[in-house]
Design a binder for these strands. Structure first.
Lengths: 201, 201
DNA sequence: AAAATATTTGACCGTCTGGTAAAATGGACG
DNA sequence: CGTCCATTTTACCAGACGGTCAAATATTTT
């Protein structure tokens, strides 16, 4: 049946994307090889190219699917909730996302670091629109005196910077903290405290 | 004279390192090519290899020379100065470093992101020692009630994360802010305000 | 000027890599 | 069984890349 063959195809494509994420996030786009991805996915290179037209196609599809997940925590912010609680919940969701999906975080970071050659449109499109919308909410909360006044965009930047730092610079964090410490457990506590102080009126 | 020929060699090596920084920071280690670096430096590939034994040698020398510069702002922190002023000055120095040397910042970020395969020793050596030393100073200041209490290591992480964010994710920052805004000018104002709130007792 | 040394170049090599072509395999269905 | 289609594999190619080598060219030294 077409339905069954489609399901097989979807499984294969999912395998390839999973392998691509694994390899791309470690080696970067240029450093990754089709052979490496194919091997990781358990098939041959030409077989991989039967499901995706090119190496870039795998990469782009990964990035596109990623951005959505990455912005979910922001979308979940409730304008009618308690400002401080909402923002701290957002920070926690973002931190957990970085903790649970470090490969995705690093893949994304690597792409932005290199000038986002494969995401031009998304950044100034979806991303910007979403941030602008929520910046208004933050500004309202500041006007109402519920949280400390600051530029809403930069407040969002600070949340991104801090939460992603623990995933993207994981090696550095661990090297500096030394063994016997649990970076993520400490991050959860410290980052919350950090933004509690930042937001306090 | 040996002195003159040495100076020529030093100039050539400096040219190559400059070109290497330019290319590596944009393409990453794997993405960069010897031809590209050589061309950017204004010489041929074999000529470049006359001054450096390999591509990796250029990269490693860049990183090593970099880490020192990168840690200078922290070294300049004065334990006997006014705590809040000292820390805000540190934040400003770090932000200016990111603003004035974005290529260095991105090169460093890319290396850490990929697991720091060329810096293993430095991170858990020089870097960790320096941070540990200054963590003690911060802890003292907290004990004395001069700045808000928090884990000193994570406080330092937060400074690194925020300041480097503007250099490393420059494309994203600009895309989200839109045209007609000056990211670095705003960053200077907002980051200072941010840490003023964080540190306030 | 000639010898000695430092620097630069062009030609080349082995390997890796993204991608292609065509044959082979496998399964669904009559 | 045989046909048709999807899938997989083997063999291969063209270009890029890191690096080498020997010859050529400057430059310094005697």
């Amino acid at each position: 049946m077409t339905d069954d063959s489609t399901r097989i195809q979807k499984n294969r494509r999912a395998q390839i994307l999973e392998a691509g994420l694994e390899v791309f996030s470690v080696e970067g786009f240029r450093g990754a090889t089709l052979d490496g991805i194919a091997q990781d996915a358990g098939l041959s290179k030409p077989n991989l190219l039967y499901y995706f037209p090119s190496k870039e196609a795998v990469y782009v599809e990964l990035l596109a699917g990623l951005l959505d997940t990455w912005l979910d925590p922001l979308r979940a912010l409730d304008p009618s909730g308690d400002p401080l609680a909402e923002l701290l919940a957002y920070v926690r969701r973002k931190l957990h996302l970085a903790r649970d999906y470090p490969r995705e975080s690093r893949l994304f970071a690597g792409e932005i670091l290199r000038g986002a050659p494969h995401m031009e449109g998304h950044l100034s499109g979806d991303l910007r629109r979403l941030v602008d919308e929520h910046a208004v909410i933050l500004a309202d909360w500041m006007d109402a005196g519920h949280i400390a006044r600051a530029d809403p965009h930069h407040l969002i930047f600070s949340i991104w910077a801090l939460t992603q730092h623990y995933a993207d610079f994981d090696v550095q964090v661990r090297a500096v903290l030394g063994e016997g410490r649990d970076p993520w457990a400490e991050a959860e506590r410290e980052v919350e405290g950090h933004f509690r102080r930042v937001l306090r009126v």
